[in-house]
Design a protein around this nucleic acid. Structure first.
Lengths: 221, 221
DNA sequence: TCCCTCGATACGGTTTACCGTAAAAAAAAG
DNA sequence: CTTTTTTTTACGGTAAACCGTATCGAGGGA
């Protein structure tokens, strides 16, 4: 059973509603935090006391607001939490499409459930909680389609490197020098060109600009 | 006074919390909708009955979920509502930074208040409601800074048009034909090139890819 | 009316990106 | 160790983007 829950969510609106959902589901004890650091501290403290949380519900993107924080991102929080309490269940509650990110997190078994802030998110959260309490994952099938649609192409580290370089203002013929300097394996201009061409092809783009915007939206930059 | 409110927000979590805030503020009557079309219909009906809404609280981005809708975007909803009930107060409740969009909406007096879904959004919403009931606008000063930061460069309609075309896969030499067809004033390839070059220059970019990513992040696409 | 100014356009040259092919190198298979 | 396959690289031609300059044309002022 899921008796003890910690909610990490900076939007007060969402945080409140999740709390209310916990009430509805008769979760015995739940706490909440508006900052990643705060959530992590509570998880550590509970662990020390021998009363660990069963489940972390967290957003992916946290706003910076001037208060300096060590962790400012849901994915970083997840990794930090897994480091101190590997067995904790983790549910992502995210507003933005980040199919690529989500998919990776599931593939690496870093998370157990995903609920998108959208039309029927309350119902979704309840369904996810039920699945988790049965020991199942909760991975909406809509997401699988989305991953297929938007991420037919699997980006390699090499891809991401050159895309980042382009985004930093490098031109293609400057990239080989950089790659050689960093001892990255394929380093010829030809390889760079070929790779870009292939990616554009598979994603159906006619120029690099579209590709860059796509990568930007997918959170690769 | 603000006695009658309609909430257009597709995220159930946010929608519920806004309703709760209305309770807290002792708003006499409020309704809610998860779709733009539904919100507009309710506004029209209330108007016919002679009991119009005082305030529309709306998100900017609405998710498509298969149910076919006429309006699928907060900005379109705002314009449609203003067309039938020009005097209604409008408050935007948005999750994403869209400083450019928001700024424009205020400049054109299309909206009266803006609250960002973020750390203290409940408090913000209450403050905004109070300002509105006094006949004031609610434009967080943080936003003014953001607009300055992220929008040093003032994009013209022309700029946005060509940037959108590029993002759709047009190449530069195809753009003049499109511009002529749409009877847009400067339409030569030379003008397009010159404009892009100028923008890149002012923003310090060395290629169009960076520019596109920038515009994407600024919410111009 | 003429002249001036400014923006739009046309044009030419240069650079960069794009795309195919073939050679070379590396990895895998036998 | 040799052969086969795959990957990387080199090269060359074409197309697109980039950039400067010169011409054209509309609007404003004298």
């Amino acid at each position: 059973m899921i008796d003890k829950v910690i909610i990490a969510e900076d939007q007060e609106f969402a945080n409140l509603s999740v709390q209310k959902t916990m009430d509805d589901l008769q979760v015995k004890q739940y706490d909440y935090a508006f900052y990643c650091d705060d959530a992590l501290a509570k998880i550590k403290l509970a662990l020390q006391k021998g009363e660990p949380y069963d489940l972390l519900i967290t957003d992916l993107s946290f706003e910076e607001d001037g208060t300096p924080q060590n962790i400012n991102d849901g994915i970083d929080l997840i990794r930090a939490v897994r480091a101190v309490q590997p067995g904790i269940l983790i549910l992502i509650l995210s507003g933005q499409h980040r199919p690529a990110d989500i998919h990776n997190l599931f593939e690496n078994k870093e998370v157990d459930a995903y609920v998108r802030k959208a039309r029927h998110d309350v119902k979704e959260l309840k369904a996810a909680m039920q699945a988790l309490s049965k020991g199942q994952q909760y991975y909406p099938r809509a997401l699988a389609q989305l991953v297929k649609q938007s991420n037919t192409y699997e980006f390699t580290d090499f891809d991401i490197t050159i895309i980042r370089l382009l985004n930093e203002g490098y031109q293609q013929n400057e990239i080989p020098a950089y790659l050689k300097q960093q001892h990255i394996k394929p380093s010829s201009l030809s390889s760079v060109e070929k790779r870009l061409s292939q990616i554009r092809d598979e994603l159906g783009f006619s120029n690099n600009q579209q590709l860059m915007v796509f990568c930007s939206n997918a959170g690769l930059l």
